[in-house]
Design a protein around this nucleic acid. Structure first.
Length: 585
RNA sequence: GCCCUUGUAGCUCAGGCGGUAGAGCACCACCAUGGUAAGGUGGGGGUCAACGGUUCAAGUCCGUUCAAGGGCUCCA
């Protein structure tokens, strides 16, 4: 407990430092741009920012100058002096600062308004700050970037210039953070995607559309095969549905009313309008509604790796993480009210099992409950929400509740995982839908002979295959576990006389289902080993006279300088076990 | 969609004040090559993102478009 307190205290001290840094930065900027209009400058995770309205655009060089000026200000070590003023006084002080005036206007009449002065700079601010600039360390901050940001985050407001900085208690922490940034850059899936020849995007063929290269496709196939096998094992059936549907479908589902801006525009054919699907649900419902259902048939659990297309704003696209065409690992569970609870418990358990198989072991759940505007019966919401909470409790997951944060059609659980760098990613989502069953008039005949509306649960475990792939690449830094590696074994003959043995080993491994390639190029063996290492291939097999005569291999794992000799058969078993166990290496 | 930055060979990049392109890696050829992270020599490859403009002359200056990056916004 004490430790946690100490940590909290540390964090809040850092907040003071960061917030104070923002003030120092504003003072520095004002010294270069006396006419600058200042907006807001809070502390944020890892640092701080301040928004400015300036006469010209800032450049990277400006950041250096501003940074130097900040160091001067810190060295002067002026105190942060607080003063309480009336609203009227505040308005006078900031009479030529329109953004500040807007903030002051918005303050309630009774509240006392505090202003802080440091050196030549006075800011409207709730505080608190460090006592004086001398408490700041000129060596433990760094200005990182300049970006556009709307005043108050509203796109109808003027665009301001935001300077981002990072600040820490001491230079060592700063260095640690900067090193971490470098590590994140090294793992960037866009960079690794190129280096390992996994996927590409093509501006001339459309932004946000992914091309899976043979190496990436190998990984995807493994993921999908595993996914299908797991679903059959867990009581799901697979379905396949079309990629386009007539407007009737989207009018009935309501998508044309409330999701049109997220859809690709219509295609006209035979006097009808067709749309590429942004979601799979209506199609699965078509299958359900194809026949009458008894309560005895339920639950239906229908899964599909369904490829959908959604319009994302150009500026929102980001590598594999936000694209315009992607494949959801989708499924819909259609069940009776009495089955809801068990289904939710089961789907959550299944979800965690799936994530675990890919090396994710830390999860956090986010439950979103009924918003003000919603459809569906009160008791259905209640049952659904209680089921979600019970399931989370049963799994012992840490969770947060976003009261009123659900979609209008039903409550949901989102699961976020932590990757190898401790970053959170949202993957799984489990959502109730009280809207579509109603719109499509879905029904089942209950034991009392009465037709009733079934519950529908929409869920994706990996989210989208593209996004999941991006997260996997970064999680493993491109060094995939053996079962996922596009190439599992690279065979390196010591010299040409051993090419025959190398080919023989390659054939044998392939027959055993191991993805192996013999490197028969005319490079020297040193170069071949290097290539195997840089491609992050799990194992390199060095084959020479010793190995040939004994039918053995000399195995060199990636990122290792040591080699292990073993019989060829032994190596086959070794790799097959790694694959079967889904071991990292 | 908005603000800023960027776009030169498959990849990573160089090309002071305009005078129609370079390096390393990769690729191809030849030579060399027997033990754990790059052997040597030579060669091919670019309408300098696209389109339009200024100019005797544009990779270089201007405009538009597309794409990428950093953010904002949005996110059934």
């Amino acid at each position: 407990m004490e430790e946690i307190m100490a940590e909290d205290k540390n964090v809040s001290h850092l907040d003071l430092v960061r917030h104070s840094m923002a003030h120092v930065m504003a003072e520095a900027v004002l010294s270069f741009f006396p006419d600058a209009k200042i907006a807001i400058g809070p502390s944020i995770e890892n640092g701080f920012y301040y928004d400015f309205d300036l006469s010209r655009s800032l450049t990277i060089e400006d950041l250096d100058l501003i940074s130097d000026k900040m160091k001067e200000i810190i060295k002067e070590g002026g105190a942060f002096e607080k003063k309480v003023v009336s609203k009227k006084e505040a308005s006078e002080i900031f009479s030529n600062q329109p953004y500040k005036l807007e903030l002051i206007e918005a303050l309630p009449e009774v509240e006392e308004i505090s202003i802080y002065t440091n050196g030549a700079f006075t800011d409207l601010c709730r505080g608190p700050h460090v006592e004086s600039a001398s408490k700041l360390n000129p060596q433990s901050f760094k200005l990182l970037s300049v970006a556009g940001a709307y005043w108050r985050g509203n796109e109808n407001n003027p665009m301001l210039q935001r300077i981002y900085g990072t600040a820490w208690s001491n230079p060592k922490e700063l260095r640690l953070y900067l090193t971490q940034l470098e590590e994140i850059e090294k793992r960037d899936h866009r960079k690794l995607g190129k280096e390992l020849d996994l996927f590409s995007m093509h501006e001339e063929a459309g932004a946000g559309l992914v091309y899976w290269h043979p190496n990436g496709a190998r990984i995807r196939m493994e993921v999908e095969n595993f996914w299908r096998a797991q679903h059959y094992d867990n009581g799901y059936e697979m379905v396949y549905t079309p990629h386009v549907g007539k407007s009737w479908l989207w009018e009935t589902s309501g998508h044309l009313d409330f999701y049109k801006e997220g859809m690709y525009p219509k295609m006209e054919m035979d006097n009808a309008d067709f749309y590429a699907k942004p979601m799979n649900c209506p199609f699965h419902i078509m299958i359900y509604n194809n026949s009458k259902h008894s309560y005895r048939d339920l639950p239906c659990r229908w899964a599909e790796l369904g490829t959908v297309y959604r319009y994302e704003k150009a500026g929102a696209l980001h590598g594999l993480l936000r694209v315009r065409g992607f494949t959801q690992d989708d499924a819909h569970i259609i069940c009776t009210p009495s089955q809801v609870e068990d289904e939710i418990v089961e789907v959550l358990r299944f979800s965690l099992e799936m994530l675990k198989a890919f090396g994710f072991t830390e999860y956090k759940a986010y439950i979103s409950t009924k918003p003000e505007k919603s459809v569906g019966r009160e008791e259905d919401w209640e049952l659904a929400t209680v089921s979600l909470k019970k399931a989370v409790d049963r799994e012992g997951l840490e969770y947060e509740i976003d009261n009123g944060g659900g979609a209008f059609y039903g409550p949901k659980i989102d699961i976020k995982i932590k990757d190898a760098l401790g970053r959170e990613w949202q993957l799984s989502t489990i959502q109730f839908d009280f809207n579509l069953p109603e719109r499509f008039k879905m029904a089942f005949t209950d034991s009392d002979g009465v037709e009733k509306r079934p519950f529908m649960i929409h869920r994706a475990l990996l989210g989208s295959i593209e996004r999941f792939f991006g997260v996997l690449i970064e999680h493993y830094a491109g060094a995939f576990p053996v079962w996922l590696s596009p190439e599992q074994v690279r065979i390196v003959p010591v010299a040409e006389p051993f090419f025959e043995y190398a080919k023989e080993v390659e054939q044998l491994l392939k027959k055993k289902g191991i993805r192996a390639t013999a490197d028969l190029s005319d490079d020297r063996m040193n170069a071949k080993i290097r290539v195997a290492q840089t491609k992050k291939i799990p194992y390199a097999l060095i084959l020479g006279e010793n190995e040939k005569s004994q039918r053995s291999v000399s195995m060199r794992p990636r990122f290792s300088r040591e080699n292990i000799s073993m019989a060829l058969d032994e190596f086959v078993d070794f790799v097959r076990k790694k694959v079967a166990d889904k071991e990292t290496i």
